[in-house]
Amino acid sequence: MALGEPGAGYPVPWLVQTWLAGTIATDADPASSESFAQDLATFIHALRQADTAGRQFNGRGRGGILTDHDEWMETCFHRSEPFLDVPPLRRLWAHLRTLPRTSPDVMTHGDLIPGNVLVSDNRLAGILDTGGFAPADPALDLVAAWHLLRKPTRQLLRSALNRDDLEWERGRAWAFEQAMGLPWYYADSNPPMALLGRRTLARLLDPDG
């Protein structure tokens, strides 16, 4: 995605007119690439600089109030019992859901998972699925840190974006909320998505992951 200049006061993505070379990050894993982490930080920073034109989070999906997702998380915990060790996951959500919000909305992609990220030579080559580009919690796009990176490159991303402890933990919360829906929901229909959820959850649970 290339971000265009705001039109009529509203920032909108340009249409991609040419083919972008690259492989989705599900297949070309860039988790250990420092160059990719730097590219990702540059991209997220650029999104944040776009003008919200006074708009705020619309109340749908991720990016608002964490506790609004309690019912969904309870469904995920129940449905995950055949697949995952649920008690430590419940304990993690009990902590993450209480994290306060202190920063105003910024423009976000909203779904920075491996399937929406193109990689070429361990560099960020493009971003897919830009229809969710909208104002939301500044922590929302930090989900990429756990979906896409291992600990050393994750810390590089954090340093490049200069995020404080609270916003970083809220990013962890949104990654957790998203990942909990994947292993059980896609167990049969989309095994790679189920595997993504398991991998992200493992990273979220392991401080060295």
Rank of each mutant, 00 (worst) to 15 (best):
P114S: 06
H109W: 02
E34Q: 13
W19L: 12
S33E: 07
D188E: 14
T26Q: 11
S33A: 10
G7M: 09
H147M: 07
T200C: 10
D51S: 15
A25Q: 05
S120Q: 15
P192Y: 04
D27Y: 12
R154T: 01
G64F: 04
E71F: 09
E74N: 11
P135D: 03
M180W: 02
L205D: 06
L112D: 05
G64Y: 06
T75K: 08
A21D: 15
T18I: 01
C76K: 03
A8L: 14
I113E: 02
A194M: 04
D188Q: 14
A144Q: 05
F43S: 10
R91D: 15
E177V: 13
L84T: 10
L196V: 05
A28Y: 02
P192A: 08
S32C: 11
N58K: 04
A136F: 08
G209E: 11
A94S: 09
A175C: 06
L118P: 07
A145F: 02
F57V: 05
E71A: 15
L157H: 08
V12I: 11
D51K: 06
A50V: 00
G115A: 10
P82D: 12
R158E: 06
A144S: 14
D129H: 07
A136V: 03
T42K: 09
F176R: 09
N190E: 14
R158Y: 10
H69P: 03
P11K: 00
L140W: 03
A202W: 02
M73Q: 12
G7T: 11
A8E: 12
M193D: 07
Y186V: 08
W184A: 15
S189Q: 12
T23G: 06
L96P: 07
A41N: 04
H109R: 05
L196R: 11
L195I: 10
L149M: 08
M73G: 00
L142Q: 06
R199N: 15
G9V: 04
S189Y: 00
A37L: 07
D121A: 15
L156A: 06
L142Y: 05
P30V: 02
A179Q: 06
T108D: 04
P183M: 11
L112M: 08
L3K: 03
V106R: 14
L92G: 01
E167Q: 15
V143D: 00
L196G: 01
R90P: 02
H69A: 07
E34Y: 07
Y10C: 10
R90N: 10
E71V: 11
T75N: 08
R79Q: 14
L142D: 03
G132T: 08
I65T: 14
S159N: 14
G59A: 03
T102K: 12
R163Y: 04
N122D: 14
V16M: 11
P104W: 12
I113M: 08
A8T: 07
F176Y: 11
L15F: 13
L149G: 01
G9R: 06
G181S: 15
H45Q: 13
D129R: 02
L99G: 10
